[in-house]
Amino acid sequence: MDRPGSLSVERLALHFGGLAVLDDISLEVRPGELLALIGPNGAGKTSVLNCISGLYRPLRGRVVFEAREITGLAPHSIASLGLARTFQHGGLFAHLTVLQNLLVGRHAHFRSNALWDGLFLGPARRSEIAQRDEAEKIIEFFEIERYRHSVVAGIPFGIQKVVGFARALAMGPRLLLLDEPSAGLNREGKEDLARFILRIKHEMHISMIWVEHDMQMVADLADRVYVMDYGEYITDGSPDQVLRDPRVVEIYLGSQSAERRHESA
């Protein structure tokens, strides 16, 4: 495979009616790289993920995954190429158990069809057992054994976030898109999350695009940071360099509000 897990987004533009959501966004993810995508609310971070995973069709621009253009492909085709994502609000199937949610993530790996499934013979039974085995590995990795058979609607919020992450990893991707995995987590939850992200990076060598608001986590974990605001590219580079950049500070604190605070003081 050519540069597994690599992705390049070239000159992406996305409009909703007259509103320019993304304007000329280009970014690159190298094999095994952890790229943090930051910017204030409404900067268009999730829209970038949606364009990559095929949920939005960009007005202009291309998305190339492992030297293969995926712009315009159906989301399920993109997913089955080895590109998985999480959702900001979990997007879990609340009536299914944790295990069933993970098995839905394994969907593309089953070797069966509706007819065999209805008879529950041959390939249906075999793949059900084989995929259960794979799902159990993920359950072990995320340390959620005790919630395996719990219905998602009944488990704590923090665990739900982990399950959303686990389901994306269960898809067996080479590139993971994480949409604010730490949002709403407490300190302990964030520490667990950091550990999962690092293990995925170092042990599984899966590339990641990570949308994040917790700058401390970004500074500690990310290989590279990409900053955007109002759908436009601002800067990118190493965390140290980017987070000190005056433009980035200005975006996050706002120059005018800083001035006003200065005046009133």
Binding site: F93, L96, A108
Partner: peptide
């Protein structure tokens, strides 16, 4: 069931 509960998510998880 996945399609019933969240069709967009189901699609993104690789379900046609």
């Amino acid at each position: 069931i996945a399609i019933r509960d969240h069709d967009v998510v189901a699609e993104a998880l690789g379900i046609p």
